[in-house]
Design a binder for these strands. Structure first.
Ligand SMILES: NC(=O)c1ccc[n+]([C@@H]2O[C@H](COP(=O)([O-])OP(=O)(O)OC[C@H]3O[C@@H](n4cnc5c(N)ncnc54)[C@H](O)[C@@H]3O)[C@@H](O)[C@H]2O)c1
Ligand SMILES: NC(=O)c1ccc[n+]([C@@H]2O[C@H](COP(=O)([O-])OP(=O)(O)OC[C@H]3O[C@@H](n4cnc5c(N)ncnc54)[C@H](O)[C@@H]3O)[C@@H](O)[C@H]2O)c1
Lengths: 232, 232
DNA sequence: CGCGATTTGTGCACGCCTTCACAAGCGCCT
DNA sequence: AGGCGCTTGTGAAGGCGTGCACAAATCGCG
């Protein structure tokens, strides 16, 4: 096929943001969009956005902007969203149930095709039209359904074992919600989502703000307008 | 008070990881830990870890390592975890319920003190010993309970309005689960958690891997061992 | 008391990312 | 047809983060 563009990691992380902004703009009836406008909608600098888009060879039109529909197609192609990807979810506790019921997956080309848990009491349960299977079936089902992405929502102590099972089953991408470090082969990508870390980072900034302001007269509501989005 | 160290943002994001690793090691009975050992437990480079710790003036002992208990105290102080921070949660749908029942908050010095929703059907519901209140009460309760951190788990279309209410109530840190960009004053910190973005980044790497391997002979399980944690 | 083993703290170089600033290109209007 | 205004694409500079490699410091032991 065509040579695959190797984009900077930072750019890749922003493409989904651009994509969402573009979808919103498209629904709003916009036909074309300037880098300035799209950058504002995505909450980034316009120069950065132009450089990001230039990396994937996408052509806008000078004096006009980018064609919304075309740009959506380009980004979706690069992200591999043109093909529906099968996802499995392991651990149907508190968080797992919420994830299973989340419609934000399907709307972006992802489809949860299987649910797994180790608890016999959970196995057999129906959730969103899917039946919870025992983790031992994972190997077989992963191959049958051609699952590429696994989501781990088990307690931390079980996460490494689950990751091993996923890897053995041929899964090459893992999204991990358990607060722990996973050890996987080099060809497997792991991304972690950790609430506690996010809160602790916010706590640091609270601490910093509190130590800088010398008795600011208590809590005051400042005028809104600015945009501070702490980087991912 | 003491001059507040201004740490690199990248360092701050890693401190919670070190903290968790230290807690695990502490429970394991370790008294001191070398930078090498701690780095392995946290999944980072040992030089990076030493530089991070040196930033906060924390002193290890050459030839020995770091005192686990002391280091925990130091990091918790810098992150502001020595004081319990009040958190409120807005939007008790699918995800909100899971978050409300999550014990990972309390164990790290955070306490959910109030739940809010706009849906009259949800208001009054009891969750984990807390009663869901109407969003209109947020302003009053936030001041009473001295809430510094707000968590948004509403649909995206409501998120900006909720953020505005939080800001007006004096909340200066926001954790946003809704897939949208929030506009807030400069003194308010926002962090975003977006599942769809994480999955799309994984999808990109799947796409890349698929386009690079020329018919790899199907799904093969590689030997485990390596650790690839995609940066946050 | 001195020496070797061990581990921290950091100077330095390199690469990535961001941001500015501007030339080149495009469309529209006269 | 020509000029003008707008927008993209990018060269260059600066800042930040990473990781190597090593000097300095500490402990244990003979
Ligand atoms: N609940 C939240 O809001 C939340 C938020 C952030 C992170 N997390 C993390 O997500 C993970 C899950 O949280 P939770 O609240 O849903 O926990 P939970 O205890 O409610 O659910 C865990 C589920 O995993 C299953 N499980 C345990 N071992 C397993 C194994 N070896 N194989 C397959 N399944 C197994 C259990 O049977 C259970 O159903 C935890 O690591 C938690 O720290 C949770
Ligand atoms: N469910 C998941 O696993 C998941 C995962 C990632 C992100 N998200 C995001 O988190 C958000 C919530 O997801 P969900 O599945 O819980 O949705 P949901 O529809 O189940 O719950 C949304 C809740 O917000 C409340 N709400 C709506 N407008 C409000 C307002 N103005 N003020 C206060 N409360 C209001 C609703 O009454 C409802 O209870 C969404 O933005 C979603 O995209 C969800």
């Amino acid at each position: 096929m065509s040579a695959f563009p190797d984009l900077p990691e930072a750019t890749i992380a922003r493409l989904p943001e651009y994509l969402r902004a573009l979808h919103n703009l498209g629904e709003g009836g916009a036909d074309t969009i300037s880098s300035e406008g799209l950058a504002a909608a995505a909450g980034v600098n316009s120069a950065k956005l132009r450089k990001d888009l230039s990396h994937l060879g996408s052509y806008g039109t000078r004096g006009v902007g980018y064609d919304v529909t075309l740009l959506i197609e380009q980004i979706e192609y690069v992200l591999g969203l043109d093909q529906r990807r099968a996802v499995c979810l392991v651990g149907l506790g508190n968080l797992g149930h919420a994830l299973a019921g989340y419609d934000g997956f399907a709307s972006r080309g992802f489809k949860i095709v299987a649910l797994f848990d180790a608890d016999e009491a959970k196995v057999g349960e129906q959730i969103q039209g899917l039946v919870v299977r025992h983790i031992e079936e994972l190997g077989r089902v992963a191959v049958e359904e051609n699952i590429a992405i696994g989501v781990i929502a088990t307690p931390a102590r079980a996460a490494q074992a689950v990751a091993d099972v996923l890897v053995d089953a041929g899964v090459t991408s893992i999204l991990n919600f358990a607060p722990c470090v996973l050890s996987v082969p080099a060809n497997v990508d792991v991304r972690k989502v950790d609430l506690a870390i996010e809160l602790q980072i916010l706590s640091f900034h609270e601490h910093r703000k509190a130590s800088l302001t010398a008795l600011p007269g208590g809590r005051s509501a400042a005028a809104a307008g600015n945009q501070e989005a702490v980087g991912s």
